[in-house]
């Protein structure tokens, strides 16, 4: 439970912070390739990235998630991340239980790579993120991606997998919002303690916030 996190030795925190920091760079590189993203005002690009980064990291981590043992396995077993590894980085089951449920549900959609990529792009270009100024421009870019996704599913994804697939994918975006909220809550708690925030990277502190400075 969230009240019983043992903060005294978060042995996985430095490693997970590095992994998340690396992933944030990947998310930025990905966002820059989305048509129209670079044409947004710099402030809007920053607002979109800061609010969606953790959601896109959760989405992209589905590629390494395996239903066999409910771990994130990257290549060999040397890079296998268990739920317990994430708790040793300071997160509680209040985040991890719904996160694993999300990973299982997403995995079972058996998305094509094209659909997976479009879902990440749609997630980044959400006009309702805090701090976004030109919401109508972001909305038009997101609408275009949604139409491409729906067309792709209709033309390239055979039934029965395609049945209600678009609606199920949009539901995943809603799930990500609450995962994001819980992550923020737990991150805030962690970063409030200097002995832990000092183990985070400058990029993580900038994107997720630095309570200390």
């Amino acid at each position: 439970s969230s009240v019983n996190i043992d903060f005294s030795h978060l042995s996985m925190l430095p490693h997970l912070a590095d992994l998340v920091s690396y992933s944030i760079q990947k998310v930025i590189g990905f966002a820059k390739m989305i048509p129209g993203f670079r044409n947004l005002a710099a402030e809007d690009q920053i607002a979109l990235l800061k609010s969606s980064a953790i959601e896109v990291i959760m989405l992209r981590s589905n590629q390494s998630f395996t239903l066999e043992d409910m771990t994130w396995t990257c290549g060999s077993n040397d890079f296998k991340y268990r739920i317990s590894d994430v708790t040793q980085a300071g997160h509680s089951m209040d985040l991890l239980e719904p996160l694993v449920k999300f990973q299982v549900g997403l995995k079972k959609l058996n998305l094509h790579e094209e659909e997976h990529v479009l879902l990440m792009a749609i997630c980044i270009l959400s006009p309702d993120r805090p701090g976004v100024q030109d919401t109508s421009l972001v909305e038009s870019l997101q609408d275009r991606l949604s139409e491409i996704l729906q067309t792709y599913i209709r033309c390239r994804h055979p039934p029965p997998g395609s049945r209600l697939l678009y609606a199920k994918m949009i539901q995943k975006l809603a799930d990500l919002r609450s995962l994001n909220e819980e992550h923020s809550k737990q991150y805030r708690c962690l970063s409030f303690q200097p002995e832990h925030s000092m183990q985070l990277t400058p990029l993580v502190l900038e994107v997720f916030g630095n309570e200390i400075s």
Partner: peptide, 18 residues
């Protein structure tokens, strides 16, 4: 609300090979 400059994000957004 404290002022955020987001210097790293700006740098990574401008950098060509990211």
């Amino acid at each position: 609300k404290k002022k955020e400059n987001n210097a790293l994000l700006r740098y990574l957004l401008d950098k060509d090979d990211v």
